[in-house]
């Protein structure tokens, strides 16, 4: 079982914070397939958060195929998230390393690199939409 928390100043919508925390727990191996997520009511009372927010987060996770609800019993983990250290990521990581090195060689400081990455990431996401 995991515990949720909400950071009001993060600027991230509360339901997304919950989604991130479940994903994180899956990645870190804190949650496994077959585990039950905390009951909506318990999360609402514990975290002092609107139960609809919890429901929304669980629905989002369901849409992502990570969990599925069993009526009257609870919401269970059904999916997995790849470990970032798995071998299929390795070539991508190598490529990114090389790109970072050339960006630094071009005189970009870390902040500019980050801004460039985010901007490009966003615009490609837009184009794909």
């Amino acid at each position: 079982m995991i515990e949720f928390h909400i950071e009001p100043r993060s600027g991230v919508a509360p339901y997304l914070q919950l989604v991130h925390q479940v994903r994180q727990a899956l990645r870190l191996g804190l949650l496994h397939q077959g585990d039950r997520l905390p009951k909506v009511k318990d999360v609402a009372a514990k975290v002092a958060i609107n139960p609809n927010t919890v429901l929304k987060a669980y629905r989002q996770l369901e849409n992502e195929g990570l969990v599925s609800p069993k009526p009257g019993v609870g919401t269970f983990v059904t999916g997995t998230l790849g470990d970032p250290a798995t071998s299929e990521h390795e070539p991508l990581r190598q490529e990114l390393r090389r790109w970072l090195a050339s960006a630094r060689a071009a005189g970009l400081d870390p902040e500019s690199i980050e801004a460039l990455f985010h901007q490009t990431f966003r615009s490609t996401a837009e184009e794909e939409r």
Binding site: V40, K41, A45, V47, N50, P51
Partner: peptide
């Protein structure tokens, strides 16, 4: 304040 909101949210969930 937190305790109060927890109670309130419990009511809403129930």
């Amino acid at each position: 304040r937190r305790a109060f909101l927890q109670s309130l949210m419990e009511f809403v969930a129930e």
